[in-house]
C-alpha cells in the first residue's frame, strides 16, 4: 500500500507571518528562489493598479525588496515543462468533438488563464489533465509522463501532483476547515504527525488560521473557496488547476482569490486557471490561452481577455 506521499510538504515556504491574517494580505512577497530579473515590472504594476478589494492600504506601501518582481519563465530558456498537450483531439462517445489538434506547453512556474466561451473545450482540457479522460488523438504529458500510457493504478499518483479547485468548492459539510484540508492528506496515507504541520502551513497560505475550526456552512463563499485552495495545496502539487474558481463569488471576493492564486504561483507552483472573468484576466496580465470550438485561437503573454467573435 502506498502510505507515504513521495514529497514532503517542505516546498512551500510561506512568506506569511505566523499569525495568518484572515484578510488576504495584498502584498506579494517574491518567492525565495526565483529569478532576480526585473523584466516583469509591467505585469506587476498592472496588478497593482487593478481593482483590489480587501487590500489594506498599508500593504501597498509596504517596503518591497528591490529586485522583487517575479520574472516570467519564458524569459529563461530551459524552464522545465510541467504540462504539454501535443496535437490533442478529443471526441466523446456521443460524437461531440471537444478538442481539435490542441498544442499547449506550460513551463514550470507559469501562470496561465484558459479562457473561452462555454463549450469551447476548457473543461475537457482539465479533464484530460487529471486523467478523467484520455485523448482520442495526441498526447497529454504531465511532468514528462504521457497520461494515456500510465496504468490505472498509477492515476492516483499523478493526481497527487495536481491541486484542483472548482466553482462549487466541493468541501465536505460535516468537517471543519482544518479537517477538510487534512482529509486530502489522510486519504493518501500521510502519517499523522506530518498532517498537522502541513495543514497549518496550508491554512496560513490562504489566511484561514482563525477559521480553522469552523464548518463550511459558517464561512463566506470566499472563505470556502480559500479552504478548497488550502486543501488543493496541502500535498504540494506541481500544478494548480482552478476551474472557474470565482464563478460563484462576487467581484471583490473574486479579486481576493485571484491575488491568492498569484501568490501561490509566486511560491513556485504552476497555475492554470480556467475562467470567464474577463475583468480579472485583463487586469492581471498573465499568459492567456483562448479556446474556441476546440481550438486554441490565441496564446499570448501578458494579455487581456478579448472576446473574439
Amino acid at each position: 500500500m502506498d502510505t507515504v506521499s513521495a514529497d514532503t510538504p517542505e516546498q512551500i515556504q510561506l512568506p506569511i507571518g505566523p499569525s495568518g491574517a484572515p484578510e488576504m494580505p495584498a502584498q506579494v512577497t517574491p518567492p525565495p528562489s526565483t529569478e532576480p530579473e526585473a523584466s516583469d515590472k509591467p505585469a506587476q504594476s498592472a496588478r497593482a493598479g487593478a481593482p483590489r478589494g480587501a487590500t489594506p492600504p498599508a500593504a501597498a506601501s509596504a517596503p518591497r525588496p528591490a529586485p522583487a518582481a517575479p520574472a516570467r519563465s519564458e524569459d529563461r530558456i530551459p524552464a522545465r515543462i510541467v504540462l504539454a498537450l501535443q496535437g490533442v483531439t478529443k471526441s466523446y462517445p456521443n460524437g461531440r468533438v471537444a478538442l481539435r489538434g490542441v498544442d499547449l506547453t506550460v513551463p514550470d512556474g507559469d501562470f496561465v488563464f484558459l479562457v473561452g466561451p462555454s463549450g469551447a473545450g476548457k473543461s475537457t482540457v482539465i479533464k484530460l489533465l487529471i486523467r478523467e479522460e484520455i485523448p482520442t488523438k495526441g498526447s497529454v504529458l504531465l511532468d514528462g509522463r504521457d497520461l494515456a500510457r500510465i496504468k490505472r493504478r498509477e492515476v492516483p499518483k499523478i493526481r497527487r501532483k495536481i491541486g484542483i479547485v472548482f466553482q462549487d468548492f466541493k468541501l465536505l459539510p460535516n468537517l471543519t476547515v482544518r479537517q477538510n484540508v487534512a482529509f486530502a492528506l489522510e486519504v493518501i496515507g500521510t502519517p499523522h504527525r506530518e498532517i498537522a504541520s502541513a495543514v497549518d502551513r496550508s491554512l496560513r497560505v490562504v489566511g484561514l488560521v482563525n477559521q480553522a475550526d469552523q464548518l463550511p456552512s459558517q464561512l463566506s463563499g470566499g472563505e470556502q473557496q480559500r479552504t478548497a485552495i488550502a486543501r488543493a495545496l496541502v500535498h504540494n502539487p506541481r500544478l494548480f488547476i482552478a476551474d472557474e474558481p470565482t464563478g460563484n463569488l462576487d467581484p471583490l471576493i473574486s479579486w481576493e482569490i485571484i491575488q491568492l492564486l498569484l501568490r501561490i504561483n509566486e511560491m513556485g507552483v504552476t497555475v492554470l486557471m480556467a475562467t470567464h472573468n474577463a475583468e480579472v484576466v485583463t487586469a492581471v496580465r498573465k499568459r492567456v490561452v483562448a479556446l474556441e470550438d476546440g481550438r486554441i485561437v490565441r496564446d499570448q503573454t501578458a494579455a487581456a481577455y478579448e472576446r473574439e467573435a
Binding site: 500500500m1 493526481r159 495536481i162 466541493k170 465536505l172 486530502a184 493518501i188 486543501r231 500535498h235
Partner: peptide, 17 residues
C-alpha cells in the same frame, strides 16, 4: 459520493476508497 469524488481528485488510491 462527494467524499469519494474528492478522494479521487486528491489522488487517493483505490484501496483507500
Amino acid at each position: 459520493a462527494d467524499e469519494i469524488e474528492i478522494m479521487r481528485l486528491v489522488g487517493a488510491s483505490d484501496a483507500f476508497i
